[in-house]
Nucleic acid binder design. Structure first.
Lengths: 326, 326
DNA sequence: TCCATTAGGACACCTCTTGTCCTCATGGCG
DNA sequence: CGCCATGAGGACAAGAGGTGTCCTAATGGA
């Protein structure tokens, strides 16, 4: 956007500017591009050629309505984002990490680290503001502070020593000086696996028990610890084994009707007999399990099959709501 | 990563490579960087200088543990992502757009358009795979196909004529040839505001009623229509006015205790008298409202104050659950 | 104090870029 | 069918700018 002073090394700037233009609109004529970049059309063609040599695929149409367009190639080109777009991406990544999406936690964190590293402070404030609006599902509040997660991801990636306050399960508070190694999700929580310098051993820390994080800018040589071993450390340390609750809902609907009524998230449903459907539910929380029942349409009859503990919870909740809604 | 053939224009490549290195790790010594880029340290210093002139803030530490680090400046540098990171970002943006996050829809879409434009097909397939795992809250299934949303966002941005099949509310199917103008979220749904070429007028289309999208690669000159007017078009067209439900929960807890018990998403709670707390709830769906109650801890007494309609729903649901959980 | 590191000036060599001028290829439109 | 606007790219000369070598100056940590 900002026209740079013309005295600097120009060909590099122009290449980036050109990429940015090609990303912000899909169709450009040679004239327009050349004018914007302040060069001849011949030079522009050379610039395009250069980008092509660098691996970016640029389609060109000849003739009356000709023009250039950047097209999906084999790799990702550098993304040239506006501030707002950067904010949108950071918010998306943060909430994704906080929600604990399985299967790609590490890439999510690494992308987040990349963007957090260069995020101007002004934009960071905007993220906080936006994030507070992201009140998605009730009860599913973020199990972790996304900002802390991002900071720790950076420190892990860069092998930077950190200090923080920690409140143990027993309630004892202490200050830890550690070499952070890896972030591991477990259940709906995140754990930091780090080398505790005072205790000279590996420790795991629950993120929501970490209070004040200080990034010393001191690097350390990474120690060996396989991801597998790190995960084992965490599951070993998690004492209050996070039980997962399950139940089966039996709907008085054919499988096809059930699919139609419940939509995509009933895709695990199976038929029971000719005109009933089994719909398996699972959740880390009893409340989450119960919530799913509320979305069954009014005109559908169903019963719940589940362990006594779960059924008792459901009955108790029903009674509470009945009493409260008078 | 891939070493390019050495014959090409190099200084631009090197600048991008350098940025990429600086983004993938926070701390680098001059030696390391120079080696990786295959140049002298003097040239490297010149490259760093160039980047600084381009506006990227690069910290340097002199002395024994010296080195360079890319630091948050005033603007976002080009993001150089690995394929995996690109996938993670696309997934995040898509689910954010699909969830209908308020306040930043347009930036989210514009960022999404940017990345979708250059996303290699192989990566796109990976996104689909990941997205099916993102089963977040029950009942909150994606109200819209994220892929369609992304495609339409691209066409709107680039003023590209499109054709698609549309099933009207009446059930009548038709094929529309339109000039897409803007995507507008309303309730949990998305609407496309477009100029219908056959009817020669503005029309709104619900995204989940659009069936087969064809992108003609024909551009058109954008017509004037303010965002405000577009939004009005949509809310005018939405007949079944999407009512939003509200309720107030009165908890037998002090405000402080309620905050502690309910966590961050009870931040709108206010005190009522000395030892009660008012907790306002709002949701587009009755079920969403009811679900919130389930997360209130067992040992807390509460009552619900709400319109008769809402109370009736709560009682009915309670009875259903009671009956089903036998 | 010493050492390793970044910072940057000077200079010679040479590559690469740029604009001008040219011809060719291609797609849409009348 | 032929016209015209557009992209593609070769040739060439002028000159700008990148590179490596060699140098000295700061600076931070042990």
């Amino acid at each position: 956007m900002a026209r740079h002073t013309e005295t600097m090394s120009d060909t590099t700037t122009r290449a980036l500017d050109l990429l940015s233009l090609l990303q912000s609109h899909r169709h450009w004529s040679s004239r327009e591009l050349a004018d914007r970049l302040g060069v001849t059309d011949r030079t522009l063609r050379r610039d395009i050629e250069r980008l092509r040599e660098l691996g970016y695929e640029i389609d060109a149409a000849r003739g009356a309505v000709g023009g250039y367009r950047l097209v999906a190639g084999t790799g990702l080109p550098p993304l040239l984002l506006t501030d707002d777009e950067g904010v949108a991406i950071a918010v998306g990544l943060r909430s994704q990490a906080a929600a604990g999406l399985r299967g790609s936690e590490h890439t999510t964190l690494s992308a987040l680290a990349k963007i957090e590293q260069v995020l101007p402070p002004t934009l960071r404030r905007r993220i906080e503001a936006l994030q507070s609006h992201t009140t998605v599902a009730p009860g599913e509040g973020p199990a972790v502070d996304a900002d802390l997660l991002a900071q720790l991801a950076l420190s892990c990636r860069d092998s930077e020593r950190i200090r923080f306050g920690y409140t143990a399960a027993s309630g004892r508070e202490s200050t830890r000086s550690t070499e952070p190694h890896m972030l591991v999700p477990h259940g709906r929580r995140w754990y930091l696996v780090a080398w505790d310098r005072d205790r000279a051993d590996w420790r795991t820390f629950r993120l929501d028990r970490i209070s004040t994080l200080q990034q010393t800018r001191v690097m350390f040589p990474p120690r060996d610890l396989s991801p597998r071993a790190a995960a084992d450390l965490v599951s070993g340390a998690v004492s209050w084994t996070e039980t997962s609750y399950t139940a089966t809902v039996v709907l008085d609907l054919t499988l096809a009707d059930a699919r139609a009524a419940l939509g995509w998230w009933a895709k695990e449903a199976t038929a029971r007999g000719a005109d009933q459907t089994e719909w398996p539910l699972a959740s880390d929380h009893l409340a989450g399990l119960a919530a799913a029942l509320l979305w069954i349409p009014h005109d559908v009859n169903y019963t719940v099959e589940a362990p006594a503990e779960v059924l008792a919870f459901l009955r108790a909740q029903a009674d509470r709501v009945r009493a409260a809604a008078r």
